[in-house]
Amino acid sequence: MRITFSLVFGLVVLLWAGGASAQEAALQKGKQVYDYWCATCHGEGPGKPGTTALAAKYKESGLPGLLEARTNLTPQSVRFFIRNGASIMPFFRKTEVSDADVDAIAAYLTRPKPAAPPVAPQAVRP
């Protein structure tokens, strides 16, 4: 949630400052779809089994468990895992994540990584 807020905030600032290019809009869309479909398992913090699993998988190689922190993902690999799944992660149907959504997630995850933006607190109920 904190990541969601801060990155969206960052992107909004970007758009405001620099004018909305198609590429930025695509990234924003990618971030949105990623947050909805992926971050619930692959986000940061406790209770994120995707992040835990990848951290265990890449322990030796030192790659981060957090997908958003990876710098070696390709659009092809992102597409492969969304449509094929991996161990307990199932594949996703096109009514869930459309081909355009897959492209947006891939663009988001493979974007040049910006410096970490400030974290804004967010109220959570209950």
């Binding site: 209770g47 089994p49 835990t52 699993a53 265990a56 161990s87 307990i88």
Partner: peptide, 22 residues
């Protein structure tokens, strides 16, 4: 509060290097 933490069952962890397929 909905979440996905249960999907650690059978998933890869440091103590479970061979995850299941469900």
């Amino acid at each position: 509060v909905p979440n996905m933490s249960i999907f650690s069952i059978g998933a890869r962890t440091e103590r479970n290097p061979t995850p299941s397929s469900g």
